[in-house]
């Protein structure tokens, strides 16, 4: 951008019409060149992810592949590769269900009930949540899991991850709950609906986009989490994909680019597909029965 500015000012002799047009053109050219560079910077790694798995001898550079499917065959020979993806699904789904269910109930309560110090509580939780699953608390968490017999158990990983995600999820969902008018619920109350019925019939369908958002966000978080499952799960048979990725090295400690690139592709596809599916299914549609 700075280069366009200097060229533009140097090519401006008097400020009459053609000069202004030239300056405008140069500014345009400069802007698009800059955008292309930025785009290339971010697109190259993705391009590598798309080409390297199909390359006979992948390197760290993206190039036109010598097409082969051998990499996939080699990956299938690895006993833990596919099952680790399944493990990831277990952990992500379990955590997402717990987080969505508890966050919805807590957010509804916090949104509708006046508790003194409610906002302070929310901000405090939000602040602490980044610590719970952070590196700093790994030792006490490990100790806790050990005492509770939750070492090498998927449930333990799910509980710890849920605990870390819940505060932020409550915070996000409370915003959704706050923006739904209370007259819906009051109307249902006058008809005799119980609080749980109101939650099930009215509130959950109304904040469904919010629930979907939180669910996707939780899945993506768990999918990418390495530290918690790495420390708490012992054998490779329960390890999720993020941990198995770490084992795809040759004996010499060198990254096996053929396996690594192929596994990376398989690892990232489910999350990408989930985003597409959820946004098409639960996109932000709101039918509106409130006349404003």
């Amino acid at each position: 951008m700075t280069s366009t500015a200097t060229t533009a000012s140097s090519t401006e002799p008097t400020g009459d019409r053609p000069a202004v047009a030239v300056r405008h053109l140069l500014a345009q050219v400069g802007r698009y060149t800059f955008l292309c560079v930025v785009l290339g910077f971010f697109a190259l790694p993705l391009l590598w992810l798309a080409t390297a798995p199909f390359d006979d001898t992948p390197t760290v550079t993206a190039s036109l592949p010598a097409f082969t499917l051998d990499n996939f065959r080699a990956l299938l020979d690895n006993p833990y590769a596919l099952s680790s993806l399944l493990n990831s699904v277990y952990l992500a789904a379990g955590t997402a269900v717990l987080v969505v269910a508890f966050a919805a109930l807590a957010a509804y309560a916090l949104s509708r009930v006046r508790v003194p110090g409610r906002d302070a509580l929310l901000y405090g939780l939000l602040l602490l949540s980044s610590i719970v699953t952070g590196t700093a608390t790994m030792v006490p968490l490990f100790e806790l899991a050990f005492r509770l017999n939750l070492i090498d158990s998927r449930l333990g990983v799910i509980l710890i991850l849920s605990g870390g995600l819940l505060p932020a999820a409550i915070f996000i969902l409370k915003d959704f709950m706050d923006s739904t008018p209370t007259s819906y619920e009051e109307s249902a109350r006058v008809f005799g609906a119980s609080p749980l019925q109101i939650m099930r019939h009215i509130v959950v369908p109304l904040v469904r986009p919010g629930l979907a958002t939180v669910g996707v966000w939780a899945v993506a978080n768990v999918w990418g989490n390495f530290l918690v499952p790495f420390l708490l799960l012992r054998g490779p048979d329960k390890a999720p994909a993020a941990v198995i990725m770490y084992t795809l090295y040759t004996e010499g400690g060198q990254a096996d680019l053929r396996l690594l690139s192929t596994f990376s592709l398989l690892y990232s596809l489910p999350v990408a597909l989930m985003f597409v599916f959820v946004s098409s299914r639960y996109g932000f549609r709101f039918h509106g029965g409130i006349k404003r």
Binding site: S187, H287, G289
Partner: peptide, 11 residues
């Protein structure tokens, strides 16, 4: 009760 905004359930 009929509310001012009618409170019809949109879904």
């Amino acid at each position: 009760m009929v509310f001012q905004d009618y409170a019809l359930f949109p879904h």
